[in-house]
Design a protein around this nucleic acid. Sequence first.
DNA 1: CTGAAAGCGCTTACAG
DNA 2: CTGAAAGCGCTTACAG
Lengths: 344, 344
Amino acid sequence: MPMPLKNHRATGRVTLADVALAAGVSPSTVSRALRGERAVDPLLIERVQAASTRLGYVPDPAARALASRRSNHVAILIPLLSNALFVDLLDAAQKTLRAGGYQTLMGVTHYDASEEEQLLREQLLHRPAGLLVTGLDHNPATRQLMASTQVPCVHLMDLPAQPQAEAPHCVGFRQTDAGAAMTRHLLARGRQRIAFAAAQLDPRVMQRLYGWRTALQAVGLHDRALEFLHPAPSSLALGGALFEQIMRQRPAVDAIFFCNDDLAQGALMAALRLGISVPSQVAIAGFNDLTGSDQMVPTLTTVRTPRARIGEAAAQMLLQLMHGEEPEQAHLDLGFEIVHRQST
Amino acid sequence: MPMPLKNHRATGRVTLADVALAAGVSPSTVSRALRGERAVDPLLIERVQAASTRLGYVPDPAARALASRRSNHVAILIPLLSNALFVDLLDAAQKTLRAGGYQTLMGVTHYDASEEEQLLREQLLHRPAGLLVTGLDHNPATRQLMASTQVPCVHLMDLPAQPQAEAPHCVGFRQTDAGAAMTRHLLARGRQRIAFAAAQLDPRVMQRLYGWRTALQAVGLHDRALEFLHPAPSSLALGGALFEQIMRQRPAVDAIFFCNDDLAQGALMAALRLGISVPSQVAIAGFNDLTGSDQMVPTLTTVRTPRARIGEAAAQMLLQLMHGEEPEQAHLDLGFEIVHRQST
DNA sequence: CTGAAAGCGCTTACAG
DNA sequence: CTGAAAGCGCTTACAG
């Protein structure tokens, strides 16, 4: 009578040991050969790979993580899922990481520094192979955690003010420059009383505000009374409300620069409702070039931000770091683009 | 001179064994006490918990997964991240699962049955504790995988046509009924020539189409020529294009029911551009009540779908299944709501 | 109810 | 370049 196969464990799963037996080598060699570690005889590699394929072997991620003290997970921390910006970032990063053999674990921080810290702690316990984190602003405990861990980390969306040696790896664009560039665009279109309207007020929004302020100060047109800052999350409804408030309080404004497209889209809708003509009475500009902005009536002038490319490039950089390589540039500036449409 | 602590391993991590030593019990007892397995002396439980807290012990997920052959991961398979519907689903499910101590691993299928199968295979190798899958339509191999695995699974967004005993666990609403209900709403508003315009054409969209068709046939007003089906993904731009096409080819239509709000929003914008008045010349209705629909001019009549509640309830159901409990209802119907606004 | 022991399936110094 | 052995940190029958 046939004996049960000795090389198959009780779980029925094909293991490294099974492959070793089939290939006539030791488990250590199989391990090395399969992971492409050099210093293995090419002939053995071939034999191991043949056996592995024949048996349909797939490494057990849990065992691998336990033994190597490193999982194949990458944690990505983003502020919100309700902002399409971050969804695009997540989508692109996830795709690239998956192609590199990594699983993506997402954490939503809700723009809350202590929730971010908490999430980071949890993730670190899972020994992620890498970390993708939104922004460069973190509370001290979070910075401490990231500094002390050996886990490679790339920051998204932002760049350090001055390229410093100690600044962490990051992929993004200059938020301040983008804010200033759009303001100059409005000035070039002949606008004089340009308001800035913002929601959420996260650090990147504040940088755009700073860019707006600087550009206006440079031409002596800055007016503090034209800053409209609201801490609530960005949305079409809030954009409409801000627009109404601005037109009521400062009817003389001739342009409004919103820190995000959903606000600007809401403003466009409110203008339609109120019978305020855009851009003849007031110009409206947004930020990010979110979906739908090219469909508005009038179409929305905005800053196109390379969020998908940021997600992909950051994932690529992380892939390099996880492989022990140092990327050519630690700070990758992917730029931005002013998209001029009908609303300005 | 002080000896190095014997109860801390080289990795510096506090382990189960450390807690056992500190509490004066065996590792097995610590394991049982911490997981709340009954049949442990309450006094010991207390001692173990005290020691665990004092040492700051956190179980290693990899070791746990390896030993128990089950991770604390839940995989969620959704079609797209570019449709806000699925992002809301993901957000809600993720929040609930996290509260229950599980990590969420997402997979994006791009509405591709073989990509779904591939993702499922990969996920299964990671021995997820549970599975959340969009829809009830899968290719035979996928169905086979789900049937043969022991991993608990809950399906999202849809319900079986007839409540059958063998149907899998699911949380959703009746897509066909929702399609019919909106059509009857339009009929009740006096519309006679009601078109149906759809994109993506996934199974749930086809059910809405079926509902529309049935409701119109019931009153003898169904006209096959008023079905406009486009396989591309849903978007504002496509909605605008469909609207233009319909108004050109069938200028006599007095209502258009779009299968998703982004299409309807795009149609509203196109109407504005073309100077077609909504609802007086043509009524427009959408589906899902996505963000922004209440801000359109005119505001958009739509079907509000309980996607956040679906995500949460499905996660709750899965939590029960993973704990070995059987939920009261295997098929949870969370319903829908017609939201009547200005566009109809 | 509790503990000793084996085992989960890998990786990685350590010898050779 | 290769292998034997130890170890990663848990869980889980199996005895008692």
